[in-house]
């Protein structure tokens, strides 16, 4: 170990401590709701980027993976009354397995088939859930918020803190991956899959690892969602907006670096909350679409990429 305490872990501890202080100090519940949604989007963006940014395969069905996590929670909460941490683990397992399955069926072929399959997957899962009366079917399901919220003053405060921990953990995983042997293998696949295979990279296995991690992380983001909204129906859980944000945030922030989706999510997420409150939520949604198209057409390297390029120019 070169640095016993790296700047990353120092900032992680600072962020968590600040979050904890926030739950003690802030009074307005709105801030927690807004922050929860931004953190949820951040985990989704970080997850999407592991496959999209690091490995170079597009997932359009993020909403499907997210909803699979949410509905796993609903089903297991109803059936067994499991505590939230176990529901999160279950959500990760289910969505991770879905990722592995779709990946196994389509990734041996061309990459675009995977993209198309993920898009259709969201529709199929939605159809399935809409017909599954146990979890409320098309009408939706109410979830009782548990009484216990530890030492926090409300359940939403606790959920916010939980989400913050999950978000820091997913960023840490993504960062670790970015600088690991596995991460370099994924980058080789993204750059040139044939050359990677000939350099000894087991491309299919690495792609499957990548889709599984992505799916599991999205399941984690979705698992606490029912307890946050207390009423879930398929149309809101499978909202296309979830999928668009998961793509737009990394694309705007920059896909090649672990920091990209974090920057994108914080920036776009905060902007969305501001617009939602001050203007309207439809305009907000439209704006994300337009930003996505503009960024990928004009600045495909994203904000982090632009900054890196600028720094390199200055040092050269």
């Amino acid at each position: 170990m070169r640095n016993l305490v790296s700047p990353f872990w120092v900032s992680a501890v600072v962020v968590l401590a600040a979050g904890l202080a926030f739950t003690e100090l802030a009074a307005n519940e709105y801030y927690f709701t807004a922050a929860y949604l931004i953190l949820q989007a951040l985990i989704m963006a970080v997850a999407w980027n592991i496959l999209g940014g690091f490995t170079g395969y597009v997932n359009f069905g993020s909403a499907g993976f997210f909803a699979a996590g949410a509905y796993t929670s609903i089903a297991l909460d109803k059936a067994l009354g499991l505590p939230l941490p176990l529901l999160i683990v279950a959500g990760a397992l289910v969505s991770g397995l879905i990722g592995l399955g779709v990946g196994y069926l389509t990734l041996r072929l061309r990459g675009v088939y995977f993209a198309i399959a993920t898009l259709a997957l969201a529709i199929v899962l939605e159809t399935f859930v809409s017909n599954w009366t146990y979890v409320g079917g098309a009408r939706g399901a109410f979830i009782l918020t548990p009484e216990n919220h530890l030492w926090f003053s409300s359940y939403v405060h606790m959920l916010f803190m939980l989400m913050l921990i999950l978000a820091v953990a997913s960023v840490a995983i993504s960062r670790k991956l970015n600088f690991s042997r596995l991460g370099r293998g994924l980058a080789a696949i993204r750059d040139d899959e044939i050359a990677a295979e000939c350099a000894g990279v087991p491309t299919l296995r690495l792609k499957l690892v990548s889709t599984t991690i992505m799916g599991a992380m999205m399941g984690v983001a979705g698992a606490p969602y029912p307890f946050f909204v207390t009423y879930v129906e398929p149309i809101s859980a499978f909202n296309l907006f979830v999928a668009v944000n998961a793509i737009a945030m990394p694309m705007i922030g920059g896909t090649a670096h672990w920091l990209g989706p974090v920057v994108g999510a914080l920036l776009v997420g905060s902007l969305q909350e501001i617009i939602k409150v001050n203007i309207s939520s439809e305009i907000n949604i439209l704006l994300v679409g337009i930003m996505l198209v503009l960024f990928i057409s004009l600045a495909p390297q994203g904000i982090v990429g632009l900054v890196q390029k600028h720094l390199r120019k200055r040092s050269a």
Binding site: Y57, G111, V244, L292, I296, P300
Partner: peptide
């Protein structure tokens, strides 16, 4: 934006996704 620069597999796909989303919204 994409085909000429060899970016069609990731950015090109996301481009059409964005177009789809804009039309719908």
């Amino acid at each position: 934006a994409f085909e000429r620069t060899g970016q069609e597999s990731l950015s090109g796909l996301a481009f059409f996704f964005g177009i789809m989303f804009i039309i719908e919204v």
